[in-house]
Amino acid sequence: MDRRHFLTLAGSAVAATALGGTALSALAAPAGKAGPGRPHGVPAAVAGVLAAAPGQPLDAAAFHAARRFQPTRFGRIAYLEQGSGPAALFLHGFPLNSFQWRGALPLLAPYRRCVAPDFLGLGYTEVAPGQGMAPQDQVAMLAELLDRLQIDSVDLIANDSGGAAAQLFMVRYPQRVRSLLLTNCDSEPECPPAALAPVIELAKAGTFADQWFQPWLADKALARSAQGIGGMCYADPAHPSDEALECYLGPLVSSPQRKAQMHAYAVALERNSLQGISAALKASPVPVRVLWGEADDIFTAASARYFEQAFGNGRGLRRLPGSKLFWPEEKPALLAAEARALWKLA
């Protein structure tokens, strides 16, 4: 498949088993009842220990059991939360969800209250009827989510289309951002990347999920091949794992409604949401560090060069030879080390 057919990405829940290790943040609802802090049917005594061992990635069972839902005017926003103290907000790529951060959250939870939401139209978020999926809608949703969680300011960490949302959030709510750690993502000159054009056309036709996600779910070796999301977006041929594919793509093909919402997310990326943002980025005092996978076939080296000069308080760009678009999933320790270094400067 041509690289321009890239983002043809598309959960079934795994039975939860209690794992020893670091507990997630206290869950709000009483035992046996559901609430914003706990999925339906997960007792507090169980949910409190459904986390990875210290420093170890969450597996799918822990991920599904620990998921929370926060009601907002945009819908019920699915998110993970781990740790305490000043907050860090993790923004995933397309078509991923908060499972992307399963390795980074346990590493950073000792230092931050880590919150990883699922965007509108992706993951397990339940979108309100008639709600838009454009980047501006995502940014407004994030602001309300933080309000509901009583979080005033955050350290942002973002990848792919989540990086566009992060830049918009920093400009729209400058007082709410302490620092920004960007990985491969949209820049004003490359928003969206040319590789996304075929995806947008398939999404407009309403066929993207059926043509690409369904075959990848049915044949996970195909999904990890050069013709799948694995070969296009990951350097390690073992990625994404079977359970990651189920977590990412499963919910997006679970119903005609979910397919339509995901297609709306993709179509909304057609417009350059970062048009005219460069002056505001240059004027921002927020410290920004950029980590760039040099083998990325989606975003070009031109975006890396742009980001080297884009920020008024830029803290440098680190190039990662051989890494592709979704490298944060493969190298959570590197991401966590860079985040901790940046936070000391913020």
Rank of each mutant, 00 (worst) to 15 (best):
P251L: 09
G276W: 05
A260T: 13
K259N: 10
W216L: 11
G293I: 02
P237I: 11
A266S: 01
A194M: 02
L245A: 12
I298Q: 04
G276T: 06
D242E: 07
R289W: 03
A280H: 06
G276C: 03
D219I: 08
A235D: 14
G250F: 12
V288F: 08
W292H: 10
L181H: 14
S225W: 12
T183F: 04
V171Q: 10
F311M: 14
A235L: 09
L196F: 14
A223L: 01
K220I: 04
K220G: 06
E270Y: 05
L180T: 03
P237T: 11
N184G: 10
Q214L: 15
C233N: 02
D297M: 01
N184E: 03
I298R: 02
A221V: 06
Q261R: 10
G231C: 13
P193F: 12
L180C: 07
P192H: 08
Q227M: 02
S273N: 12
I298M: 08
A283E: 05
A264W: 07
L274Q: 06
A301P: 01
H263L: 08
N272L: 07
G206P: 05
C191Q: 11
I229C: 09
W216P: 00
V171D: 05
G276F: 11
A310R: 13
A235V: 06
Q214V: 15
G293D: 01
L269C: 14
I298C: 10
E270H: 11
A209E: 15
R258C: 00
R289I: 07
V199D: 13
V199A: 15
V286Q: 05
G231E: 13
V253F: 10
I200H: 06
V267Q: 02
E246F: 08
V253L: 15
C185V: 04
A194Q: 04
G276D: 09
L269D: 08
Y234M: 00
V267N: 03
V286T: 02
V267K: 02
A264Y: 05
L245H: 07
G230Y: 01
A304Q: 12
I277N: 08
N184V: 07
I298P: 04
T207G: 05
A197N: 00
A223F: 01
P237H: 05
Q309H: 15
S303T: 13
D297I: 00
